[in-house]
Design a protein around this nucleic acid. Structure first.
Lengths: 332, 332
DNA sequence: TTTGAGGCTGGTAACGTTAACCGCGGGAGA
DNA sequence: TCTCCCGCGGTTAACGTTACCAGCCTCAAA
């Protein structure tokens, strides 16, 4: 297995100095066309490719043209759509993207972010877990830019792009109230996750505005994944005093509800739209958000920071859209 | 913004030489506990973190502990599930993952792979486009290991992990034939994509085995995304001599068929399972494959190569599973 | 006391690249 | 003709780390 050729090899082959090769490879001016042609010829025959590791080391004042993307779970359609739009934005600018999933585990988040920073990433698009923040401050002090997306990171003053979860949840619950529901259950993921807390708060506020209070037996937190959600919802359905409507805190929990057949017994509104929601029986009404827009906005903000924008941290709130597909009404 | 501290700074702070710091950071033995403690103290107060860029440069004989993952479209649930399992496998081994989507565009594939190799990745998990291969040979000659997944790369002798698309498609079409269908349409993505060619071949073979031939008006290739698929399927349905059954070549096309309402007029079997397929009306029968298993297997193979396995390229074929949900039978 | 071994630490030279300078010619203006 | 400048190309010293080797000190055995 042949060793990778270096600029030295190219220089020898072309009969010029190493610096001339560097200039040609970097596309700098100040090399005579004839010389440049000879160098390019040598590059082609040797199959030379610049070593960007070495390059980035030398020009460390500049950037490594790499960003890190840290999400909860890359396999989740919401995050993968977000990831794709971040990657597109990076590709347009000639940046590479390192990815990592945290599984909402602060230790894994720390591992991943730490490894990314050791690789000198210029910035991070981060879906933060509920873990410790001191660590990030250190990295940011060293010049790593951070933009949070989907959720803010408590105690970290950085840009953040998210939707108005509370308002979205409120709209969903009001929709159920307007259809006469009074016993509305909440089913959601772990409360350590900011979006879940916000959505639950929106649920509470909407109930309160209607003169109702939260009934603990109708609330289930901490449901990870749709299987767990389905089990919990089966329990709710089997209770002696079941709800008449369900508000679910994210797409996976909504899928669990659909799995459990809840939408055929209760009214159902979920946070997050999902593929085929409109083709189910009954079609499921949702509060939708646009993950691609979240990712794109976060990436644009990050690249702005990398390009030197050092204004005060901004908080961008994107809109949610309530999509009424009928599942909030009375059950057939 | 403070400059990142280097080993030199730590050495000065701890009153030792740079080499001693290097040894402590690398966790090597041969440093007196008292000295090591002093160094660690200095590391903590300065907030030092090793620069892995520089590290990888120096120990270039070793690896960069980074792999590249190149897929068609990260936002596609199939590829994001695959990506997640590759990332998990890498995390377990302490490797980082660079990702890129190609959009099935050979130019973007080349850009991305080239940038990854310039960053000295140790290997690539690649979902190849139909583009030119010479380029990869060059990279492989320089020691970059490549494992293809989902599709082989024509003319490139590397490991490949995929399912038996032809057999899977055959099973689907036989299922339709057994239910008495004789006019079975094929709708699929671009024929440049190997999986689509294989699945179409399986369709052809199954028809031939039943004494039937392919009827060109019943075949639609080149459908990118579910919107295009839905349009094409509307046309098929409006034809004077419509089919009685549909076999679709991938998940997006199947979604297009569902969108177009095809499953309520025709029998329908799709390649690739998808979320909620079992909750539709009617539930959709599919040929399912396991993207996480594909990714995991590919990653394991790749790490084997990185660890020095230089046996002949292997081709791993994973099984598909036909899931009968009833949509292949007569229409109600 | 000498010797040698072994544990610990330091100096130096790379890894592949670029920044900063320098020097060589030749052409134009005085 | 002499200077000055500019286009071109080369030389050297880094970037932050590790490989390699040399030196020191201590302790035990001879």
């Amino acid at each position: 297995m042949a060793e990778r050729p270096t600029m030295k090899d190219v220089a020898r082959a072309a009969g010029v100095s190493l610096m001339t090769v560097s200039r040609v490879v970097a596309g700098e001016s100040g090399v005579a066309p004839r010389t440049a042609a000879r160098v390019e010829e040598a590059i082609r025959t040797l199959g030379y490719q610049r070593n960007d590791i070495a390059r980035n080391l030398r020009r460390k004042a500049q950037d490594s043209r790499t960003i890190g993307l840290v999400v909860d779970d890359l396999a989740n359609p919401f995050f993968s759509a977000l990831a794709r739009s971040v990657e597109d934005e990076a590709y347009r600018r000639g940046f590479l993207v390192l990815v990592g999933s945290t599984n909402d585990d602060p230790k894994r988040e720390r591992d991943v972010v730490s490894a990314f920073c050791a690789r000198q990433v210029d910035g991070l698009v981060l879906v933060p877990t509920g873990g410790n923040r001191a660590f990030f401050r250190e990295q940011m002090a060293r010049g790593v830019k951070v933009v949070c997306v989907d959720r803010p990171a408590a105690g970290l003053s950085v840009d953040c792009v998210a939707v108005d979860n509370r308002a979205g949840a409120g709209a969903a619950v009001r929709h159920l109230l307007e259809h006469g529901h009074r016993r509305i259950a909440y089913v959601g993921d772990r409360q350590e996750i900011w979006t879940q807390r916000e959505r639950f708060a929106g649920y509470e506020e909407a109930l309160a505005a209607a003169g109702l209070t939260v009934e603990p037996p109708l609330v289930r937190h901490g449901l990870r994944g749709h299987r767990e959600a389905a089990t919990a919802i089966h329990e709710l359905m089997a209770s002696p005093t079941p709800p008449t409507a369900l508000f679910s805190g994210n797409d996976l929990v909504t899928l669990g509800a659909v799995d459990a057949g809840a939408s055929r017994r209760f009214a159902l509104v979920g946070f997050d739209d999902f593929l085929l929601a409109d083709k189910l029986n009954p079609p499921v009404s949702v509060v939708s958000q646009d993950p691609a827009a979240l990712g794109r906005t976060a990436a644009q903000l990050l690249f702005g920071r990398i390009d030197g924008d050092d204004s005060a941290p901004r908080s961008v709130v994107l809109a949610t859209k309530f999509i009424d597909r009928g599942s909030g009404g009375p059950v057939a």
